[in-house]
Amino acid sequence: MRADRPRGWRLVGRYTVLGVVAAVVLFPIYAVLLQALKSGPDALDHPSSLLPTHLTLDTITTAWTDGNLGRMMLNSMLVSLLVTAGVMLTSLLSAYAFAFLRFPGRGVLFVFFVATMLVPAEVTVVINRRTADSLGWLNSYQGLVVPALASTFGMLLVRQMFLTLPKELHEAASLDGVGHLRFLWEVAAPLSRPTLGALGLFTFLGTWNAYLWPSQVITDEAHKTIQIGLEDLKTPGDISRFNLITGGLVIAALPIFVMLVLFQRQLVRGLTAGAVKG
């Protein structure tokens, strides 16, 4: 018997605690979801708004059309996919250099990389906005994507994973004449799949959810991402349209929720593979 497997009443107690806690954590999501699935008046009739009756997709569809959310979702999707692919690429390359190559100045460069992680966006945003401006990147996809393409977090995560691979693999490959890129694609990357999956998921999530930087570089409707666009649904004063925003919230969070449900285990496994081992 495992030391931590309870039985009988303790089991019931444990499920009860888990259930109550889950209910509390999920309550905000549940309340907003139900409001989004009701017509305006029903949504505001509390506490019956919390009962799953009189459900309709009207609010969500209205939010979708009125808020121009389709366009924003596409923007968010495009930007998040590009950034995720880019970050995985740059992280793989820099992690490989730090994990497998020996060159003078490696330690100094590594410290440089890590130090950049400590610089908060708040410090860089003002100047970066000007840089984007002078490049003509305001209100453009480049402006949203390019500055996010290098990730020290990603480099560290992948490097940590690479360091757990047996050294002999790399030595055997170098004796067999395997080039660096081939080793990276054919050996190191496939063996680091869980870590890369976690990195990809986190990067996608972070980009999808980014707020400060998009709010600074994007002002036009054509390039707005969903996160900064949602606010437009927050029309003060007009109570009848109030729950439109709940429809917008559901739409904005849905893709990420689906990803989370599908990949929750991989996320934890990917982090366990590299991060925990000092």
Partner: peptide
Amino acid sequence: VEPKLRDVAMVFQSYALYPH
């Protein structure tokens, strides 16, 4: 001379096979 150009093959104690 780089290892790959020495025309030597090596068998490691841990075998160093590619697990995937």
